[in-house]
Design a protein around this nucleic acid. Structure first.
Lengths: 151, 151
DNA sequence: CTACATTATGCGAAACTTTGCAACTACAAG
DNA sequence: CTTGTAGTTGCAAAGTTTCGCATAATGTAG
């Protein structure tokens, strides 16, 4: 299934319409890879669709997220970033608060956690959009170690 | 220990200074309760400290968060909100994407999950700032049922 | 108490994000 | 193909959040 086909299917499933803007924006996102900001996508997509408006990018990115085609990160306090959702290998994300690195989070671990929370409170965690903050191996080691002395 | 004392202790621990702005802002937050936006706190605190600047509120709220005195939520796409951290009863938060309700999340469940993730990837999830999105009991019931027909 | 180094604050400007509205377009139906 | 409805877009304005810099305040040491 091509990228465009999936776009059409997923969007219509949610009642969204398939427009040139959405198609080009999704293609741009798919082409550029991870860690994209709205501004970056805007700049690139605008070359193919000159009249494109920034507000449209924000709204489109929101629709694509709702349709499950892309995911959001929030690395620190910088502008929001996102990436194409990986349908072959669904996973959450771990964002290091110190260095900003983004790791994949195995959904099996999440699944287990989700069940527990659901059992305890009835709340259904959205595991696919899951982005958690914390410290990666390197940074947690570096932060805990007292300079000049090993932990 | 009074509110002000804790402020002093926690801020100094992190190398922050204790200022009138920070004191008043923390008091305002403590007094107003949950679900506060920066603008709300700004408006209220400004009555006691007329020269107060919005940028200062943003920076202060950031410092207080870093010092572990308050927590952030991100309910949908609305402006960021936060609340005083409950030191007597630490917990995470579950935010319903549909109705916006905020539930408490038992840290024992999180603790277990944290250990697993740490074992798998070495990543240390910050459980105290944990805010997860999903659907509350009511909304998940409402959303899953197809009107007039069961799944 | 005084002087010093460091951190905070206020201010203005910039950057980022959302919103309302009129014109436009996709898609389904006739 | 024509029509109609509902969702979209561009634009402009408003709202939210961050940043740089000069001034002011805090905490520390003398």
């Amino acid at each position: 299934m091509s990228c465009g086909d999936r776009l059409a299917v997923e969007l219509r499933k949610k009642g969204y319409k398939v427009t040139a803007q959405r198609t080009i924006l999704l293609e741009t996102i798919a082409h550029k890879g991870d860690h994209l900001s709205v501004q970056e996508v805007y700049k690139e997509a605008r070359e193919r669709l000159p009249g494109l408006n920034l507000a449209t990018v924000y709204r489109t990115v929101d629709s694509l997220r709702d349709a499950g085609l892309i995911d959001w990160y929030s690395p620190g306090s910088e502008p929001m970033q996102f990436a194409l959702r990986d349908h072959e290998n669904p996973h959450g994300h771990l964002v290091c608060k110190s260095c900003g690195e983004v790791l994949d989070l195995d959904l099996d671990l999440v699944e287990d956690f989700k069940q527990k929370v659901r059992g305890a409170s009835g709340f259904q965690i959205d595991g696919n959009h899951l982005t958690l903050e914390g410290l990666c191996v390197e940074c947690s080691a570096g932060n805990l170690a007292i300079p000049g002395k090993e932990a």
